[in-house]
Amino acid sequence: MLRSELRSFHAVAKHNGFSRAGKVLNISQPTLSTQVKALEQRYGVELFNRIGRDIRLTVPGHELFEITSRLTQAERDAENLLDTFMGFHSGTLNLAAVGPFHATDMIVAFKQKYPLIDVEVRFGNSSRCFERILSFDADVGIIAEVPQDDRVTTLPYSVHDVVTFVHSQHPFFQRDSISISELEGERIVRRETGSTTRIAIENELQNRGISVKTVLEMDSREAIWKAVEQGLGIGFVADFEFVAHPNLRAIPIADAKVKTNYYLAYLTERAQSQNHRILLQGRAQPH
């Protein structure tokens, strides 16, 4: 019974609620509540703080969730290992990526070699992708400027220049390049905290003593592109991520080396799992 109770606890913690967890496990909410309550009563511990319909993990709950995350991933790894004896004909690869561009290259190469393995990908900034790796929600991440963490192995993947991009009515639009000093006083539409593109350009501006005016902060590339197109300000993006558009143009910064480094990242303890071996051995290189 303990295994069922732990599975129920893990689902509630992962999906942040009994209702969502019940839908994922295809069992009723009362059954989930009963199993979690039985677990708490058996060991005399409170795993969730319940405030109305909201729940929050307690300190013991957080510690248990870390363990059940490892158990759940170990079970998936065991299933994937057994799949190797069938020629990689089933299984799922979970990928976290800072954007679709690198991820698409990797997924195409992976699917060509292993067409019957499902691929699930979630996008977010580097900080969020790193969290998904640590929480066992992602097998591999494609992230930039990863923090130092002994639990995670990183492999260099690619390096790209950061460029500015402007709308068709901006004075920079007809330019082949600009000097970084020309950004002084420019209106900026910037990414959210945790974006490595934002960190790279802001560090360079600060080092050069250049001041800009932030008019908007947005958490998606698409939203920033739309805001720049509407003339609200200029934006910054890694060069390979810029998508050609008649009303937008990417302009290199000629006298500054503003770059973002991209890495493949995965939990060190899972280096020998099926998904890591087949992905890292034949990984696609970005264009």
Rank of each mutant, 00 (worst) to 15 (best):
I142H: 07
R50W: 04
E184V: 02
W225P: 00
K37D: 09
I117V: 09
S19D: 11
D239A: 07
P252F: 01
V108Y: 15
R76H: 14
V228A: 04
V159C: 14
P252G: 02
A38D: 10
S33N: 14
F172M: 01
F242N: 03
D77G: 07
L25Q: 15
Q73C: 05
Q281C: 07
P286I: 02
R221V: 06
T72A: 12
P286S: 06
G124W: 15
S90P: 05
H10F: 13
V243M: 06
L81T: 11
H160I: 04
H287P: 12
A284S: 15
D149A: 05
R20I: 07
L39M: 13
T214H: 04
V152C: 07
D105L: 04
M1N: 12
A97V: 00
A21R: 15
R3L: 15
Q35T: 10
V45Y: 06
I55A: 07
R132L: 15
Q112G: 13
L95F: 05
I107K: 00
T34M: 14
E120I: 11
V189F: 02
R208E: 05
Q41T: 12
L155C: 01
M106D: 00
P156C: 04
R151M: 11
A284W: 15
F65C: 07
D118W: 01
T193R: 13
K213G: 00
G44F: 06
I251W: 00
Q35E: 13
L71T: 05
E192R: 09
V119M: 02
V98D: 02
S28G: 14
A13W: 10
E131V: 14
G52W: 01
H287V: 08
Y262M: 12
V258W: 02
E145V: 01
E63T: 06
D118K: 08
D239F: 05
E202S: 01
P252H: 00
F165N: 02
D105P: 04
E5I: 13
L279E: 09
A223Q: 12
Q285G: 04
S126W: 11
V243E: 10
D176N: 06
I178M: 00
E204R: 02
S33C: 13
G17A: 09
H15D: 08
D219A: 14
R191A: 10
P100N: 04
S179N: 02
V36I: 14
R208A: 07
A109M: 09
N49E: 08
F85L: 15
I55L: 13
V119K: 02
R132Y: 15
S168T: 09
T92W: 02
T164Y: 00
A144G: 08
R270T: 07
E131W: 07
D83G: 13
I210R: 03
L280N: 03
E192F: 05
P246A: 13
L81F: 13
Q112L: 15
S127N: 12
Q274A: 13
A223I: 03
G194E: 14
A96Q: 10
